[in-house]
């Protein structure tokens, strides 16, 4: 193994320029993949965050009184799906509306404090915020007969869920396309490296080197290119992320409700590193084997 690494190091020294070109191509491919992953991760986080905001408003039947409201509140608070529930009396609803929409305050005042129905504002537990779960929960409230209307932004929950699903599928599809393109890009660069070293390979073959002896250093060089490329790519992505944080940190919460831009999670960072090793070593092995097959 030491011999293989030593020969790989000699190969790198002798073809330093090509080594860095190949490393640069690996890094560029990984930056492309990483940028895409960064966008997907943040979009998913954003949409998931929006979905987390979903809560159910259940408006009581006008015929029900304070005791019914309290009884209903305590019954709903005991349900397994419910994280928190608060009662909004007609007076509180009127005050809220007057505060948020001053233009209707006059109409609300004329109609009196009981113009708006009492309601329960229900926040569901995270695991019960999916479109189907919220649907089922709302239906159960409607079926109880206590509520005149149950509102939970049905369309929004559904759209957010579908968007997340679509984003996931697009992520996988585009990720595969970019990875394949990266493999071809790196493969062509490695072909140049192999061609530049054809004399050496031919001589090694003539003096009795086995395929493994010849390919070993190539693969080690590929791994080194992949690791260096991955490190460079992660450095670039980190720099871009920090740059965007500085530029967008004030805008994001206002525009999208996002707290901040997230960097790639540890699993994806590891995947990018392993991906670098793969797109460095695999084309080196394939190009080396193809070349050896043509040698006398």
């Amino acid at each position: 193994m030491i011999g293989v690494v030593r020969r790989a190091a000699r190969g790198i020294r002798e073809h330093l320029y090509l080594f860095f070109v190949a490393t640069g191509v690996v890094a560029a491919a990984l930056v492309l993949l990483g940028t895409f992953a960064l966008v997907v991760v943040n979009l998913q986080g954003l949409v998931a965050g929006w979905q987390q905001d979903v809560h159910v408003s259940a408006y009581f039947q006008p015929s029900l009184g304070v005791e019914d409201w309290a009884e209903a509140k305590s019954a709903i608070a005991g349900r397994v799906e419910v994280d928190a529930v608060s009662l909004v009396s007609p007076e509180e609803a009127a005050a809220w509306m007057t505060e948020r929409m001053p233009e209707v305050s006059e109409v609300v005042g004329e109609l009196g404090p009981s113009a708006l129905p009492a309601s329960l504002e229900i926040t569901l537990r995270a695991e019960h915020r999916g479109a189907e779960a919220v649907d089922a929960f709302a239906e159960s409230l409607s079926a109880s007969g206590r509520f005149a209307e149950v509102d939970y932004g049905r369309e929004w929950v559904g759209r957010a869920g579908s968007f997340l699903e679509l984003l996931g599928m697009l992520g996988v599809a585009l990720g595969v396309i970019i990875a394949v393109a990266a493999l071809f890009l790196v493969g062509n660069t490695i072909n140049l490296v192999v061609l530049a070293r054809r004399d050496e390979l031919e001589i090694l073959r003539l003096v009795g080197a086995t395929d493994g002896y010849i390919l070993g250093p190539f693969v080690v060089e590929g791994v080194a290119q992949g690791l260096l490329g991955a490190l460079a790519a992660l450095g670039c992505l980190q720099a871009v992320h920090r740059g965007l944080l500085v530029q967008l940190d004030d805008i994001l919460p206002l525009a999208f409700g996002a707290e901040s831009l997230h960097f790639l999670p540890a699993g994806l960072v590891l995947a990018l590193g392993l991906g670098g090793v793969l797109i460095g070593a695999l084309p080196a092995w394939v190009a080396g084997r193809r070349f050896l097959a043509r040698l006398p």
């Binding site: 011999g3 020969r7 001589i203 090694l204």
Partner: peptide, 18 residues
Amino acid sequence: KLLPRRTVGQNVAMALEV
């Protein structure tokens, strides 16, 4: 069929290294 950038010794040693 020599590698011009390697030394005489390195060229000869290739056959031993393999």
